[in-house]
Design a binder for these strands. Structure first.
Lengths: 347, 347
DNA sequence: CGCTTTTTTATAAACGTTTTTATTTTAAAC
DNA sequence: GTTTAAAATAAAAACGTTTATAAAAAAGCG
């Protein structure tokens, strides 16, 4: 690999002049600059990364910690963040926490396991002197990522930072559920069952609020029995649908597409026609939703937008000399209804 | 951040002694070693990454270049590779080539666009002095990744290196298609239509060979008209199914699950019962295959195994002083038939 | 005990940059 | 033509390690 010194020799100038040329310092003559640039171009010189990192304070690397790279939504978010940051001449280092080997057969709680993976990863990133860290949670919840004395820009995406010092980017679940419910009501449905997610989950809570608000705005009495709690799995969608059907709902709002698929399973098994007899909507716009029959109406989580917004926030912190804990914020990315075939108008 | 010098001062020894202790050199007294280790433990010292990288030849980083992180299969492969390498105390840096912004609306061929992204990425990785590079192709084909004078270990996964100097890891398509065809024959099918992928694709070619071999072994005459070429999309699956149905096939072998979903669309539309009237099998074991009704019998691409095998090969090259171009190899990972509900026995 | 050998520790150079400081050259002013 | 200021270039120090070399201490041996 060619070095600064060699470039300097080839140009017959000193290494500091070459360095100044590269870094766009003003104190280098026009003719010299041209010559140096020409040689650099010709030789394809690139500064040694480690030497540079050692000398400079900033490395122009941002660390991305993904809780689980294979979890729904994580990859598109990561992709978008990488794209944005690269566009601004930042590099990224990705760490995937969910290293299956480490996580198997230990007696610890998932939160303990997570922390025991997370903390070393943060140290790791700190030791390579990243300029910032973005943490992508596997599912939306309050999460304790960064210590209180963290000095570099750090945000948490798809989850809420326990420590309010850090900015979070999440989806607007209240509005999302509100939109879905309003849509169902606009199609004539008044008795709308809900297959919720896990009870203590942030998504679940916010979406229930959105659902309630829509009912309230339309002067429909809220019936808590119409809310059944699942656990995001297909099987739980199947089970809860049974209860909802028995209560005579005309539409089912499932809080993710996978449970909606479970609902399909039940309805199909019982010979109840989806859309014609009971309308179903999901949430996520998971790939599977377009392959269910009838194609599932759902609420798209705008993963690319989430990633781009996160990158924008990080960039903002990076460029405008960041002061720890200043102006933390919660950004909510709206979802978008995608209407397919699983909802029919009634009355 | 604490430094080697400070550790040395705290211990009252020289920095080289501390360095030797850390790196497990033999020439340090037992008592000194204990003391130094204790201080390091207590202070949580970590060597400066850049200083180390600058001094040492090896960085213990391997670069992963993903052609398209959001492409089917890429993420699980990446995950598995990361897990394996981290288990052996290697770091990874991931680069995603498919940066949407760069790829839109330019008049270039996809291969040109790819190369114009790939070459800078390789330079990038080289400039951070990675010890090895693994390239993960977006789909299986012969691909020109690495220049002939590449000096560090490099492999291509999910594709075949054009330059035979480099090791490739691919799936065993011949055997996969052979197994599927054999299975269909064992279920009584003798007139088996194929919805192939794109014509010039490696998957396509090898799977056709496997299909032919199975027919041959079972003494069934091969009819080239029974092979229809699609382009991996749902729409093409729909279209080609029409032709196949007209030719009176009793079973359809679709070369991916998405096209099989297209086949479902057609059959459903025409009132032809899947499984009962015509059997369908897919390929990939894409997430959607379990959500189609009836659930699709398909051939699972063992992504985790692919990743692990790739990591193993890379590790092997890394640890046993690699000599460029020596013993390149093509490793084929077998697929695994997953039997669901879309195939029925006939006769 | 003095000599050599081995073990342990210390010193200094090197890695390739950036940055601060110093020096030289050029231009401007008198 | 000399002095001064500005511009351009060069020299040197620093970043935090590792390693080669040197030095010191300890051990072995007649």
């Amino acid at each position: 690999m060619i070095t600064l010194k060699e470039i300097a020799q080839m140009c017959g100038v000193s290494i500091s002049t070459v360095s100044n040329t590269i870094n766009g310092k003003p104190n280098v003559g026009e003719e010299t600059r041209r010559k140096v640039l020409e040689v650099i171009e010709r030789t394809g010189y690139k500064p040694n990364y480690f030497a540079q990192g050692m000398r400079k304070q900033k490395t122009r690397i941002v660390g991305i910690i993904a809780e689980d790279l294979t979890a729904f939504g994580t990859t598109p978010i990561v992709s978008a963040i990488m794209a944005c940051l690269e566009g601004h001449n930042y590099r990224t280092v990705l760490i995937n926490l969910r290293i299956y080997d480490k996580w198997q057969d230990t007696g610890h709680s998932s939160e303990q396991k997570l922390q025991s993976s997370l903390q070393p990863s943060i140290k790791e990133l700190l030791s390579i002197k990243v300029d910032g860290i973005v943490y992508i949670a596997g599912h939306c919840r309050v999460i304790n990522c960064f210590p209180d004395d963290f000095r570099i820009p750090a945000i948490v995406v798809y989850g809420l930072s326990k420590n309010p010092r850090f900015t979070s980017v999440i989806i607007d679940d209240k509005k999302g559920a509100y939109d879905i419910t309003k849509y169902l009501i606009s199609m004539g449905h008044r008795r709308i069952g809900v297959i919720a997610g896990a009870v203590d989950n942030l998504h679940t809570m916010n979406r229930i609020i959105g659902y309630q608000q829509a009912l309230f705005d339309e002067k429909i009495l809220f019936n808590p029995d119409l809310i059944r709690y699942g656990d995001w799995t297909r099987a739980s969608g199947y089970n809860e649908t049974g209860h909802l059907v028995n209560m005579g709902v005309t539409a089912i709002f499932s809080m993710n597409d996978v449970m909606a698929a479970g609902a399909y399973d039940y309805l199909h098994e019982k010979g109840i026609r989806i859309a014609d007899d009971i309308s179903v909507v999901g949430y996520d716009n998971n790939e599977i939703s377009a392959y269910l029959r009838p194609a599932l109406t759902t609420n798209q989580i705008q993963l690319k937008e989430i990633g781009e917004e996160s990158a924008k926030i990080m960039l903002e912190m990076l460029e405008n000399n960041y002061t720890p804990g200043k102006n933390p914020d919660i950004t909510e990315i709206p979802c978008q209804l995608v209407i397919r075939e699983s909802v029919k108008r009634i009355n």
